[in-house]
Amino acid sequence: MESFKFDRQLVIDGALILFGSFLLATGYSLFLAPAHISPGGVYGLALVIRELLKQIFHMEVGLGTIALFFNVPLFLLAMHGLGKVAAVKTIVTFILVALFSDLIDTWFAGKPLVEDAILCSFYGGAILGVSVWMIFRAQSTCAGTDTLARVLSRTFNTKVSTLIMFIDSIVVLLGLWVFEDWRVPLYSWIAIFIYSKVVEALQPQNPHKSVFIISDKTEELRDALIGRMGVRGTFLHGRGMYTRAEREILFIIIERKNIQPLKKIVLELDPRAFITTADVSNDTMPILL
Rank of each mutant, 00 (worst) to 15 (best):
A278C: 06
W182K: 06
Y28D: 02
T26C: 12
V231D: 01
V92M: 13
F166E: 00
L63G: 07
I170A: 13
F100H: 02
T277N: 05
I190A: 00
W177C: 02
S153K: 09
G14V: 09
I252K: 01
K159L: 08
V172P: 00
T147G: 08
F122C: 05
L148Y: 13
P73Y: 11
F6A: 12
Q139E: 13
R228Q: 15
F166P: 00
V130F: 15
H208W: 09
G64T: 10
A109C: 05
C142R: 06
I167E: 03
A35V: 04
I249Q: 01
T234I: 14
L250V: 03
N71I: 12
I56R: 15
P271L: 15
G233M: 08
L236T: 03
V114K: 03
V72E: 13
K257P: 01
L186C: 11
E220Y: 06
D223W: 10
E219L: 14
S140F: 06
P207S: 13
G230M: 12
R50I: 14
Q205I: 00
D102H: 13
D223K: 09
L96V: 00
T106A: 15
Q9G: 09
I118C: 14
I170D: 08
L82C: 06
I127S: 02
I252F: 12
V48R: 04
K264S: 06
I164Q: 05
I265G: 01
A25L: 08
M1W: 10
E268S: 13
H58E: 09
G124W: 13
L77M: 13
I12W: 02
F166N: 01
D168V: 11
S101D: 11
V184A: 04
E180A: 11
R256Q: 08
F94C: 05
I190G: 03
V97N: 07
P261V: 08
L96W: 05
L99R: 05
I275D: 04
F156A: 03
K263M: 06
D216L: 09
V199Q: 09
L267N: 06
A224Y: 01
M165A: 12
V92W: 13
L47D: 05
R222Q: 14
V184E: 01
K197R: 15
T65S: 07
I118M: 15
I37S: 00
I17T: 07
R8T: 13
Q55K: 14
K217R: 15
Q9H: 10
E220C: 01
Q205F: 00
L221N: 04
P286A: 01
L269F: 03
H208P: 00
G230Y: 12
G62P: 01
K257D: 03
V114Q: 05
I265R: 04
M79N: 09
V72G: 09
T155G: 15
T26G: 04
R232T: 11
